[in-house]
Structures are given as structure tokens and as C-alpha cells.
Design a protein around this nucleic acid. Sequence first.
DNA 1: TAGTCTGTTAGACA
DNA 2: CTGTCTAACAGACT
Length: 263
Amino acid sequence: MPELGEVEIVRRNLEKWWVNQSAKQVVILDGDVFSSGQDRFETTMTQVAVKAGRRGKYLFVTFANANVIVFHFRMTGKITLEATPDARFMRVAWQVDDGWLSFKDARRLGHIDVFSAEEFENYQPIAKMGPEPFDITGAQLKERAGRRILKSALMDQSVIAGVGNIAVSEVFWRLRLAPDIMAAQLTEIQWDELASGISDFFSEVIEVDEADEIEYVNQGGPNTFDVYGRLGEPCPRCKTIIARQKIGGRSSYYCPTCQSAAA
DNA sequence: TAGTCTGTTAGACA
DNA sequence: CTGTCTAACAGACT
């Protein structure tokens, strides 16, 4: 579920489903999901969950004993609530008042860590992460991005937290930025538009996609985006056929007319 | 079928 | 340090 908006939706769901309770039963179906702390997982899960938090694309739950369990979904991970759990793709499951929560991950790229409070403080991916999109100005974004290809800079989590491949395609289309534009080419006004555009995009995702289970465009879910995943379809603005180009190893979808380099 | 795609990111390399 | 590429993995689509 991977970009910031979807992770935030799961965080809110966990606040409803899990916080103020402890797991009644815990089942580990695939111990490989732990990149650290498997030996502390079950004892931590017996504690009451105090808070569900998020930084960028990382989701974490803080427990009564101050331990923190961190979830990262990578490409295809999710947390579901089911009355009768379906074991397909399930890696870990735990029972709460409303049913069974489980971490599911078809591609098995996601991971879980169990940290003490101090270890969590020092967890580098979060410690080094840039500001949340809701808390950054255009000028700050410009300074942090440096002089790289803009897309690469935005996807660097230490520049700004939570931006992924879909957000880049969608926000670039809205602002009419060419997919391969360099950071140094943006005007001050465009930096401001970019900072607010990213923040608006995530706010909308959270609003539109809020649901008990996240659906992925690439796994049969509906495509609610303007250009992402729409190769060969007409641009919603000008009807030019949407193209695709790899930038920094990741596909960018864009309108060759609206998003010309000169713009 | 076989090849190509996929919402991520750490680590290897130039 | 910077940027670029790949692996990790498994399923869906062409």
C-alpha cells in the first residue's frame, strides 16, 4: 500500500481496530517477515497497543511496555481485518475484538521489526527521513532536493517523506511538469506549487480511498488516477495519448502535450 | 508460453 | 559524495 496516503489509511484503521487492546492470539505463518526482533514479537503483542503512528511509508504501533512494532509494506503488503481469516498471502495474524488482523503480502517484500523505544529512536530509515509533505514549504523542498533529476529527488525519502512513483506521475501531470525535468529548472513558484501539490494529492488519496482494505491498481483494484497506469488512454485535459518513460528506473506516465519539456 | 510489468528500498557499483 | 542499476519476490497481464 505503499505510498503515504494508503499507509495513513491503515494507521487510522488500526486506531479503530487495535489501539487500547492487546492481541488475544498471535500466529506467525512466515517468520521471514521479520527483519529484526522476531524473538520479542509475541511477548510484545501481549501488551496493550497504545498508539498507531506513521512516518512516510512506515507504520508503527507503540505498546504499553514502550516497545514499538514497525511495519513496512513495500510493494504489495497490507493489513486486513477479517472475521474468518483467509491464509492466502498471510504472514502474521493476530486476534482483536472485531476479528483477525493480518499482515498480508503477496510479493513478500514487506517486513516487520520489533524495537525497544531506544532502538526505534535510532532506526535510521525513519531518523533520516525528510519532512512530511504536509509540513514542507517550496523553499525547503528546493533546498533539500539539490540538483538531481526532480523525480529521483522526490522519491528519496530523506528529501521528503512518503512520495512514491504514483504520486510523482500524478503531481507532475497536474503541474504540467515534464517527467524528466531537472530540479534546477523549477522556478520558485513551481517549487511552491510542487510542495502544495504533493500535500494535496495525499490528502485526496486519504479522503477518496479511506476503506477497510486498500486496493492496488496493479492487482485488480480500480484506477482512480489521471495518468498513472493509463498508457495509451487519452489525457483527461487535452486528449493526447498518455505515454510512459522510465526515469530513474521507474515508469513515469505523462501527457506528451501538456507536459512538454519547455513548459 | 515467455516476457514484461508492478504503489519499495538497501546495497553494489562507477 | 553523487547517480544508476539490481536484487529481493510473486502474481497478473499481454
